[in-house]
Design a protein around this nucleic acid. Structure first.
Lengths: 150, 150
DNA sequence: GAACACCCTGTAGCGACTACAGAGTCAAGC
DNA sequence: GCTTGACTCTGTAGTCGCTACAGGGTGTTC
């Protein structure tokens, strides 16, 4: 099948497929005489595996490790378990951070209930004034909440 | 004060300060005869404001809006309230996504409790086999859980 | 043979930094 | 005056996982 068909089957963008090939997650497929990539069922399964991992928010490097085990069925899978445990830990951590963030944001939001002049806005004051500088050196800044949707 | 002193005072990296200047969040400071940046108290306060916003996981574009209001005290601050409401919404959304993720990950993790051979590993099977393809076309992929720590 | 959908490579952009390279500045000590 | 070492300067490239082109080639249908 062509790259477009593979993309349709797996719900993955064409550019993303080429990117995975470039990153070594997908093996280089054969080519037609006109230099088009030609994929088989095994590529579709591999790509589905990768997409399922990505939907679980795993990093490509983590997926690389899983792929190694996928193609080495004899090996002991303890590392797979450990990887997943670590990943679950990251997700837990991030949830805790965001929950604490939400509390702070709601507290801030309560400082200005109605639209008044910016001069008197409790939110701007809360952001600008002297405050508990928990984070001034802590640097556990956390990746974006803002989604990159297509 | 020099950029290094400002960095120490605010707990912000030097490169980050230059980056904020480049992005127009911090005004260009004066220079010494030797071309070193020279900052005053007002820069320190502004930078603290920005860092406080960042510690609340706001995007630089959101902060830009807040800065506009900060320097226009007469204006109606309704937009500030709206911005914060939207931001809280994003955080809430992300928490919900991550919680659902955690449930899926734990379910997957339960499929292989002990280290056995990769061939029989329930996790790899769970990732690879036929599954509920909720996400195959949904594409509500969510930014990384993996922290970029320094 | 023309239209059109598809594919190719390569490069640049996103956000918010971070990490250099290669150069210049400045204060303290000798 | 000269050296050492800490600091600063500009500019560019890298991070991550894509996404979006530009400028071309391929393949099928009418």
């Amino acid at each position: 099948m062509t790259i477009g068909e593979l993309a349709r089957r797996t719900g993955c963008g064409i550019e993303t497929i080429r990117y995975y090939e470039h990153e070594g997650l997908l093996p280089k497929p054969g080519r037609t005489s006109g230099n088009f990539r030609r994929y088989g069922q095994e590529h579709a399964e591999l790509l589905s595996f990768i997409r399922r991992c990505r939907s679980l928010d795993m990093a490509l490097n983590e997926i690389r490790i899983l792929l190694r085990f996928r193609s080495a069925p004899g090996e002991n899978c303890g590392e797979v378990n450990a990887l997943l445990d670590t990943h679950i830990g990251h997700v837990e951590e991030r949830i805790a951070e965001l929950q604490s963030l939400e509390i702070q944001l709601r507290a801030l939001r309560n400082k200005c209930s109605s639209a008044r002049s910016a001069e008197d806005c409790g939110i701007l004051q809360g952001l600008g004034g002297a405050s508990d500088d928990r984070d001034a050196s802590g640097d556990k800044h956390v990746p974006r909440t803002h989604s990159t949707k297509r």
